[in-house]
């Protein structure tokens, strides 16, 4: 464990909690893609299949449970909470995410570290996390609604990606065997997509602020 990875995990968790608290506080999920949140929950559920079989550390196990619980809490809020679900942009959040799930699964069947049940699902979760932001990106381009996507959410999401890349660079130079090319390549693609999301986020933000000022 290095400080970059720890800080990356913390900023990732904070970004999820910021979104959950924002939805719960405002009782609104306008502008938030349920499909992206469902993909994130699927990422954690398929990545942490080893939760009960491999014990890495207390930190590792606790964080896995927290990530699964917080991502499912957001999906539950957006699907079941009587007030929140009314503000969901159902007719705008129409990205066909099932094709993304299928493509990632097929890719995981082809590209993985070892052909075992757990490893294939681990690779699947890595690929899926990289593209999970797509429905949110499309929804943002369509709705331009950044009310619930606070600046802090975007900031911590960016910090999470940046810190993880620094963590991989650090591990590459300090550990002899650092062969996590699946996570690194997929992580770089994920960071590029996040940069695209951040670009549209700030465009929408500027547009919204301009309209407010007029």
């Amino acid at each position: 464990m290095n400080i970059f990875r720890f800080a990356g995990d913390m900023t990732h968790l904070i970004s999820i909690l910021i979104l959950l608290l924002k939805i719960y506080a405002t009782k609104s999920c306008a502008g938030i893609s349920l499909k992206t949140q469902e993909l994130y929950a699927l990422v954690f559920l398929t990545r942490y299949l080893d939760l009960f079989t491999d014990y890495v550390s207390l930190y590792n196990s606790v964080m896995k449970i927290v990530f699964i619980a917080s991502s499912l809490a957001i999906v539950w809020c957006m699907r079941r909470h009587p007030l929140v679900r009314r503000s969901y942009d159902k007719d705008l959040d129409t990205f066909r995410h099932q094709y993304v799930v299928l493509a990632c699964f097929v890719l995981a069947l082809v590209l993985h570290e070892r052909f075992t049940f757990q490893e294939v699902f681990w690779a699947f979760s890595i690929y899926l996390e990289a593209v999970a932001i797509l429905p949110q990106l499309v929804l943002l381009q369509r709705s331009g609604n950044v009310d619930n996507l606070t600046g802090q959410y975007v900031l911590f999401l960016g910090a999470y990606r940046g810190l993880y890349i620094i963590n991989w660079i650090y591990r590459y130079f300090t550990e002899d065997h650092f062969a996590r090319w699946i996570a690194c390549v997929s992580g770089l693609i994920q960071t590029a997509l996040y940069a695209d999301f951040f670009y549209y986020y700030y465009l929408s933000r500027i547009k919204q602020d301009t309209i407010m000022r007029l």
């Binding site: 464990m1 990545r47 080893d50 890495v56 990530f67 570290e113 963590n167 062969a179």
Partner: peptide, 10 residues
């Protein structure tokens, strides 16, 4: 399992 097979990152 051995370290490199174990996914120690979240």
């Amino acid at each position: 399992g051995d370290i490199d097979s174990e996914h120690d990152e979240l």
